[in-house]
Each structure stands twice: as C-alpha cells, then as structure tokens.
Amino acid sequence: MTTRLFDIQTGFGGVKKGQTTPIALEDCLETMAKLGIAKALVRIIPDAQEVDVCMANDRLFGACAKHPELVPCPIAVPATGRDLPDEDTQVVGFLDHNSGAAVIRPAQDYWQLTPWGSDDLFKAMAGRALPLVCPGGYVSLRDIGAIAGRFPDLPLIATEVGYRDHRTILPLLETFPNVHLSIGNNWTVHRGLEKTIEAIGPEQLLFGTGFPAAEPTMALTQLMYADISDEHRRLIAAGNMERLQNARVIQ
C-alpha cells in the first residue's frame, strides 16, 4: 500500500530576489503528482518580496480554492500597528478559507517575538488550535520554546531546522509536546527519525519537503527508507498533520 503523504513545507507563487519568474503553482502541483503527495500545506514562497501580507494571503486563498489538495498557510502578523485586522479577525478569516496553519515572519514584517508585542496573536491562534508555522529563517528554536511554554494549547511547527540542531531540537520536542518538527530541508540527520522516535515517539514529526528550494524527493526518501514501523511512517507522512487539522476549532 502506498503511504499517503501530506507535505507541510512547500509553496509557490513567490519570486526569489534576482529572478524574474515566480515559482508556478503548476510546478508545485506537478511535483506533488510526481511524488504521489496527496495534500500540501502551502505558503507563498519565496516570500522576501511579499510586502503586503493581505495581498499575499488573498492570492494564496484564491489559488487554493481551485485545488482542494492545497491547504493554505497564510501569513499572520500581530495587529500591534493598528494597520491590520485584529488578531481574532485574522484567525477567523484564515479558518474561513480552510487554512491548515498560519506562518509568521517577524523580521520581514517588522515586529518582535516579545510577549507584549505578539501574544495577542498567539492567544487567538491557540484559542482555535490553528497551528503556527515557524520557519528557521525567521524564528529561532529558543523563541519556539518560549512561545510553546506560554501557549501549551498552541501547536507549533518548526520548519527549515538544520541538521546541526539535533542537540537542541530533541529536548525542545521532549519538553514541549505542542512543538512539531518538519523533517524537510534541511534536517538531514543520520538515523534521525529512528532515534527521535525512540526518544519521544512519532507524534511530533511531520513530513515536509522544502519545495521549491530543495529537491523534494530527499524528504521522501528520508521517510521511506527509515527503519521505523509502517504505523509510525503513516503518522509522520500524513496522520499527525491530519490530527492537527481535525483539532482546529472551526465555527
């Protein structure tokens, strides 16, 4: 039986600095078809030129509405500048568009991960169990631990975690059961899946590829060749993310 895959670290629609062509939605869809990926949590990436989060999110919602296999992961920003809808309104809007998570990028959107500057956002997301995606380029593992400690009901997903971070990611996952790790680019740890499962079980591990930056087959082979049980493989491949999706409070 083919293992069902839910890619939580992928996207399309953005342009890398110095390039003229965006990553095409069709490219993302073709890659999913080639690798047999059933569902994907998608962001607008590369995102360095996405300076209007409302416009970026609207483009994302528009594309996902036409493709049920795509689950949007919009950009969330604290409403501390009084220039955006308040945090509850943002989160309700995300869920109205069937968002599977929301991503933050503090430096890009000019805010800081201080409790006084961001907790209203995390409180709104925690209240509806909407997972928070924390890309390594924007959110440190230290900050993920701090947020996870303050909001134990908020599922957090660490993406773009480096292979040299194993000494830190393992105790982070152990200490905070609400933190999850994408096994995608750039987490290339020898027997990392096997040993992480031995330490904390499979529930906090999620399949992500790192498309379009990385060759997505790398995450696939890392999962498929891991010496783990089929049950654990299915959880990482899709089951854990589907559990997080089902836990969202959609009213």
Binding site: V189, T221, Y225
Partner: peptide
C-alpha cells in the same frame, strides 16, 4: 556525506532528479 548527513535523504536528490 553519511553519516555527517543522512544517506536516506541524500539519495533522494539523484533519484528524484
């Protein structure tokens, strides 16, 4: 580069190319 990297991961870039 295994086991500095994961072989199971690195093989994917050739297989999927």
């Amino acid at each position: 580069d295994c086991y500095f990297f994961s072989l199971t991961q690195q093989i994917g870039k050739v297989v999927g190319s």
